[in-house]
Design a protein around this nucleic acid. Structure first.
Lengths: 330, 330
DNA sequence: TTGAAAGCGCTACCAA
DNA sequence: TTGGTAGCGCTTTCAA
């Protein structure tokens, strides 16, 4: 076994209580004593056992983070934000990947619940019922989703979509397709709703070509449908889908943006790396993570569940090479 | 506070000891008693407190995983493998991202050490000294690195590099550049070594154009140097660098593979999504994670540090569109 | 087969 | 300012 507080106490010639105090409330102990303890700690290389601390303090010092799919570059960026901020407050983070499976999401939360002081949950398709069951079990912050009065950090989907539609309208596009993400996804529903409003307001015809997996392959599959829809521009639920379309267009010899313009959503790093670079509605990914942690800590500290705590972060259209004025329609 | 073992005991009309036994060694308790307990557990929704269990059992049920940069798609894939396998054995995993910083790597390991039963460490540039200091503190498995007798899972860099060089030689390339990753990286050193050997054996001139960050931007920067080196093909330390070069070549109007062939390393998903798709030496990313967990558990179980446990996984060249026969040299 | 009780390592209360 | 001690929730002897 490792060195315990008793070993330190013995070596320093004080009681375990004093060692504990010297470490956690140093000014309650006389300087000479404090130094004795510090020397003993250093000599023995003592580190408090977090499990024991956790047991007596009733807190673990851990945060849980659940994401749908780490393979989508959007989430690693969020994870990094969470980690950074969590470390600032000396929290460690449990990460769990739900593999895009609502059932796993719920199971993971349940498993994590006992191990952490709070959970950051990015579970776009978990049922509202499952969600409600979770709340109250542990402090919880939703990421990119809202539900009832559960604390949440989201982005301004409405503004993001509006910027995108205005951009296309200003370029002269009059007929635009939307390739949807998972039907159950909160973000997707929000974006569709915003899109319909914005399209109507800007007198743009909106063609909803259906739902695909929020992945590159989904975009590849959608590309041909989009082409058949006779539009001059297409917006995608996320960047991965947009990138898949771009790739398929390139393969089919369709010029982007000459023959069709593409707008993605998320602002993942990869969007800048393709050619042409992808115009996209960027989310502040690491900020989402950081703010999520802040919110969670706030909740954990002041356990007043009455106030619904929410943060809405801005979305920003990044205009890049994949959008341009519409070419002549064939 | 949540429901404890005492609550269950009271409701079931037995002692806490019996509840504990009924749960963890069911056949030591008479069936009728067992059922009473189970009913009480169900009614109260009791779940054992893992912290308390951890304290008495001396194990946490957690694994730690440290990666250099979650933003490199290679690592999320490894992380997924780790998670999957860990979950099979009812372990949770702490994930920490070291931000490509050797100092942070060491600090993270130290912080994690007390919280987990074992650590999977992917720290390509941590100094050997730091590494040695860690070993012994906690069961440890190195990922993509070898050091002394520390257990490790690596891939067969030598075979991978050989396949790549043979491929280029077979296509007729006689002068090939290598864009190196971090000088301190174990994998990079291995690959350079293998490359020199393979190039000599295949009578290929090797031009080492220097070291860049193992990221897209590094590749962009390297591309112009490569072009100036008068080679017909280039190999990169990893796919991100290769992708950066590809992008820069495209921007400069250089045809790939017409004017220059590119080979990456890692086999990240993105490599297939660009155009032309990237020829690359693929690592079995999720398998690396899974095998790492297996190895770690093995070590944790049989604490016989005498045997050096290692796994070397195969690397496989994926021939795709970014390599072809060399064009006429200008 | 079951229960009483000790104790994992630590913190915090109460006394001294 | 310090020490003794109870107890966090659980498991596991040791006895009954």
């Amino acid at each position: 076994m490792a060195v315990t507080i008793k070993d330190v106490a013995k070596l320093a010639g004080v009681s375990p209580a004093t060692v504990s105090r010297a470490l956690s409330m140093p000014d309650l102990v006389r300087p000479p004593t404090r130094e004795k303890v510090q020397r003993a700690v250093a000599e023995l290389g003592y580190q408090p056992n977090p499990t024991a601390q956790g047991l007596v303090l009733g807190r673990t010092g851990n945060l849980g983070l659940i994401v749908p799919d780490l393979t989508n570059p959007f989430f690693p960026a969020v994870v990094k934000g969470v980690q950074t901020r969590a470390r600032d407050f000396e929290y460690s983070v449990f990460l769990a990947d739900a593999n895009e499976d609502p059932v796993e999401e719920a199971a993971l939360v349940r498993a994590l619940t006992k191990q952490v002081d709070g959970i950051l949950l990015c579970a776009p398709r978990m049922s509202e019922d499952d969600l409600r069951a979770l709340v109250g079990a542990t402090p919880l912050v939703l990421i990119n989703r809202r539900s009832g009065r559960i604390p949440a950090v989201t982005i301004d989907n409405l503004a993001g979509v509006r910027q995108a539609v205005s951009h296309l309208a200003a370029l002269g596009h009059r007929r635009v397709a939307y390739v949807a993400g998972p039907r159950a996804s909160w973000s997707n529903r929000e974006r569709v709703r915003a899109l319909r409003g914005a399209a109507a307001a800007q007198e743009v015809d909106l063609v909803e070509v259906g739902t695909v997996a929020p992945q590159f392959a989904g975009g590849v599959a959608a590309a041909d449908l989009v082409l058949a829809a006779g539009v001059t521009a297409v917006m995608a639920y996320n960047d991965l889908i947009a990138l898949g379309m771009l790739s398929r267009f390139t393969d089919r010899g369709i010029d982007v943006p000459g023959q069709i313009s593409i707008i993605g959503f998320d602002g993942i790093a990869m969007a800048e790396m393709v050619s042409p670079p992808l115009t996209t509605v960027a989310q502040p990914q690491d900020q989402i993570g950081r703010v999520g942690v802040d919110l969670l800590l706030e909740i954990m500290r002041s356990e007043d569940p009455a106030v619904a705590r929410r943060r809405e972060l801005p979305a920003q259209l990044m205009v890049r090479g994949s959008t341009g004025v519409p070419g002549p329609v064939d």
